[in-house]
Design a protein around this nucleic acid. Sequence first.
DNA 1: AAAAAAT
Length: 479
Amino acid sequence: MSDTQLASMQNAAPAVRFEDFGLSPDILRALADQGYTHPTPIQAEAIPIVLQGRDVMGAAQTGTGKTAGFSLPIIQSLLEHANTSASPARHPVRALILTPTRELADQVADNVKAYSRHTPLRATVVFGGVDMAPQTAALRAGVEIVIATPGRLLDHVQQKTLNLGQTQILVMDEADRMLDMGFLPDLQRIINLLPKQRQNLMFSATFSPDIKKLAASFLQNPVTIEVARSNATADNVTQVLYKVEEEAKRDAIAHIIRDRGLKQVIVFSNTKIGASRLSRHLEKEGVKASAIHGDKTQAERMAALEAFKQGTIEVLVATDVAARGLDIAELPCVINFDLPYNAEDYVHRIGRTGRAGASGDAISLYTDKDTRLLADIEKLIKHNIARLQLSGFVPQRSSERRPRRDDSESGASPSRGAQYGRSAYGPRKEKVDPWFLKPYEPEPSTGHAESDTAVANKPATTKPQKTKVAALLGGTPKR
DNA sequence: AAAAAAT
């Protein structure tokens, strides 16, 4: 027996079970339906605290079972003050769960519905991009738990199809993301609609000063629950980097997918157009792919996600709409086609894999221009990511796509490309360079951290952003 | 820089 095994046995506390929390048999039955018997660490920590009615500031990594961590005790609390009346008027909204994206709202709602299925409590989801009528019908019939994105929720409040006057529990999921997305004014409006006396739970994967300010503004004497170190990446996810020229990225993705025989992978692009293009490129290469981003209709988004979960498509090419919270069972691999502009998004993106203790791979492409982004990411996750060579990758360069040899340097007559200008292919800043024949040049092994740090420390380039959030929280509310 | 979210 290894030392670590021995140590873990000696340290092992008697395993906590869901039955130990005094949860209703109806909830336990729902958990049993799904084969859940033992809580994850965050669940074990959060459930008793939420049951006590305390406010919570949760620093929870994705994939830790956060949703059940707050849903189960909320359902229990609502049950303890159950109302047996069948009248819709007797079913006021008592718990409100806010999420930044529609897909996340839908997913959380699925979970809440599953956990409460044997109880008399009703839950419904409310988000934009889809017909309001079914949501209105569900709300009119009466629900105790609403899961929503902020905009459509406020829309319903305005339409008087939803009243938050009796809501006792507020959950803000992915609060950092909601701030990033400019939801602060909406959040403040929503909070103003709620009774002053209520329980607040706020979850955030990362902790910026803005998040702390938001927390201080509405949490009452909160208990802080921290499971994984904040801003940490799961250590069961293997992270690697491949340096690729910008023009070769799409081929590199196709190569990696084929080379590794990937059958289920999310590829993140920084732009909606980039995501669509890459998806089409992969399809041309015979890889079943779909794109998901904010310019797609909600129906297309849901269809793509479903097809990916079902395995009908192998690759989901996504913008950061899919970066946070989405739970795809046993997703083995995430690829960054672009490095995210925001280092925190890197943590979230790769958090789609390695969930629930499974192992996962996170592969990122980077170019010369990404030095700064890479430095930010490695600073945030507090370690360096292995630079690997993309083996056996010789990008396909069909003659029409491969830029012609540039003869101008040798004094020969200008190439057609030069004659006609660069309109058709866009500006090319470099002379033709047989980059794909160059040997791999690893980053200087101590150097990359040092040189990157040097870049990060340049006084002029460190961002001194004065945030709107601070202004909104501190000063006069805008609009 | 970009993306997301009510219409």
